[in-house]
Structure formats: C-alpha cells, structure tokens
Design a protein around this nucleic acid. Structure first.
Length: 331
DNA sequence: GGTTCCCGCCAAGGT
DNA sequence: ACCTTGGCGGGAACC
C-alpha cells in the first residue's frame, strides 16, 4: 500500500506485554492507549509521498489514457473502481476524468461503475457537432457581448462546461488564445436572475468556483491533446489556452480533428453527426445539454461593455489584452 | 500575494 | 436505507 523503501520485510510481531512491560490485566481504554503506543513503534508513512504536481488531473488523465488509449482497438469495458485502484487514486477523482471524457464521447456510461470506452473513435464527428453547436449558440458573438450567454446547466456541469469550453475554440479563428476568465464569463450565465439575488461576494465565489472547474477541464483536455497551455505573457499573468486538436498520443498522422480554420464540411468522419443532447440516458443528471431552442428562449443579458461587476471589468481588460495578443499571434 | 487545483464533504439521485 | 455520482469550496502547493 505504502511506497516506503524503509520497509523491506514484514515487521516483527510484538506481544503486548513486551511493549508495556506489564503482565497484568488492562482495561479496554488502557488497551486502546496501549495499541496506540504499539502503533507508534512502527514507522508511519507520510500522508502522501507524491507531490501536488505528480497528482495533477493532467498526469492522472495521462495515466488513465495509458490504460485506455484514445486510439485503441474497438470498444472496451471500463470498471471505475478497478481503474481507480490501478491508478492508486480515490474513485472521486475518476469521476472528474470520466465525466469530461464522457462529455467528449470517449466513453459512455453503461451501468453502475461501468463505462464503455470508445477512445477517440467518435471524437472527429463529435467535434464537428460541437462546432455546429457553438455556432448555433452564437458563442463568437457571446464572446463579444453581442449575444446572450447560454443558460447555466443544472446537471453534469463539468461535462457541459467542458463541451462549451471546447466550443469556444472551435468557433473562434485559429490560434485564438482564450483564458479562463473569459471562458467562464461567456459560458456561464450569471447575469439574469442570480445577479439580482446574489451578493457581490456570492457572485465572486460562484465565479471562482467555475474557474476552478475550468482548470480541471483544461487539464483533461490538455491530456487528450485537444488544447495546450500558453505561457509567456507578462501582462496577463494567468495562462491562456490554445486549440491544437491533435491527439498527442497518436501514431496515425491522418487522425485529424476539426480546427477552427477549417470548414466543418471538410471533415468526413466515419460516424454520423451525433444528436444534440450529448448526455443521453434516463438519468436526470444526464439530460442536461443546451439545445439551440433553449438558448434562444433566453432573454438578452447584460449589454456589452457595461461592467456592472468586478469580473466584467476584469474580463474587459483581459479581453482587450487577449485581442492584442491574438492579433499578434494570428497570421 | 495571487494563481492553480487537490481533496474530500455531503447532497442529489439511483437502486 | 444504502450506495453511487458529482457539485462545490476550503485551503495548501506553487509560482
């Protein structure tokens, strides 16, 4: 269980009396004390040998993809608890990864604890569909404050967020740099009802929480090879992300994924365009996906360039800076 | 001192 | 009632 090099063999067994130097009767409470004492005779493994970086979701996802390759042969079944055990992590972490991968249609929830792993076999056609969805949601216009934000998902937010995040790259020009502040402000509708009822502090926490989720998502998308993190920007300290759409773990050079600069029609994947409701199934938690009809029912949110909240102002500055950078980057 | 994001609590939903 | 799934935010590592 513990990777402690100092333990080379089974520890010597001690009789309690050897430890306590007493042969008389001990009460249950004393017994507990005693056992605690005994435990202290053994080296206690550190709570965690691995460092934070080694436990990152990106690395965990890398390891996951070693077990279940994106470009494997056919479909395979995946047991969540076994996978968690093999990777040496808690099951909770597996949900973080599998939910995003499921949102990318790399896996399908079959039954309790069981998923069907498809790898990247459906990814091409799915990305095409995502791009269309993004266009239908008018995400490019949303980015520029000219269209209402898509409604906030009630369920499967991690998966829906991941899809919308990816849509942003797909609807924007190639090499477009996107940061998380922008993404959250665009992807999550926090303007309508909630804005009037929530305090600035609550809005702040809500926003930060969504940014945290996007970090998780970004790490998995990086691991898949769809986006990359770009540093080296002195003004915006925060990292920005760029769509690369290449399977890093690919050996097949023809494994192309849709890119923002290529018309969707160019890609002729083997699969048909997937239905819009990405999370199909009976589960209420799985039904949430923003359809076009839904988004168009929504009222228009805050008009552009009228910052009424701290984040809007930050977004404005960030957007100006990113526009400047993007203009420099885009050929 | 701000950013990044692991960790695990706990509630919603499923069986 | 118990179990599974996953939203969520505290707080610590990292920069």
């Amino acid at each position: 269980m513990f990777e402690d090099d100092s333990i080379v063999s089974t520890p010597k067994r001690y009789v309690l009396t050897e430890v306590t130097n007493s042969s008389s009767y001990v009460s249950p409470t004393a017994n507990l004390k005693l056992l605690t004492n005994v435990a202290l005779h053994y080296p206690t493994p550190p709570p965690s040998t691995a460092h934070r970086k080694e436990k990152s979701l990106q690395i965990l996802c890398d390891k996951f993809l070693d077990l279940y390759p994106l470009l494997g042969n056919g479909t395979m079944e995946l047991q969540l608890d076994c996978t968690a055990a093999r990777l040496g992590v808690e099951k909770r972490r597996m949900y973080d990864i599998i939910n995003i991968l499921e949102a990318m249609q790399c896996a399908v929830h079959k039954k309790k604890n069981t998923y069907l792993w498809h790898g990247a076999s459906r990814l091409n056609s799915f990305l095409k569909m995502l791009k269309k969805q993004g266009e239908n949601l008018r995400l490019s216009e949303v980015l520029r404050g000219r269209a209402p934000k898509p409604p906030a998902p009630k369920h499967k937010t991690l998966g829906v967020l991941a899809q919308r995040f990816l849509m942003l790259f797909l609807v924007e020009p190639p090499n477009r740099l996107i940061n998380l502040e922008m993404a959250v402000s665009v992807l999550i509708d926090t303007n309508s009802k909630s804005k009037s009822t929530l305090s600035p502090e609550q809005l702040d926490r809500q926003h930060k929480s969504k940014v945290r989720r996007l970090y998780d998502i970004a790490n998995v998308l990086i691991s898949i090879g769809l986006i990359e993190k770009v540093y080296g920007n002195s003004i915006l300290k925060k990292p920005v992300f760029r769509y690369i759409g290449k399977m890093k773990k690919t050996e097949k050079p023809d494994m192309m994924t849709p890119s923002p600069n290529t018309p969707v029609s160019v890609y002729q994947g083997p699969q048909q365009i997937t239905p819009c409701h990405v999370f199909a199934g009976r589960s209420k938690r799985k039904l949430e996906f923003t359809s076009v009809a839904n988004s168009e029912k929504l009222g228009v949110t805050t008009p552009p360039h009228t910052p009424s909240h701290k984040w809007d102002e930050i977004l404005l500055v960030a957007d100006m800076e990113l526009t400047r950078i993007n203009n420099g980057v885009t050929v």
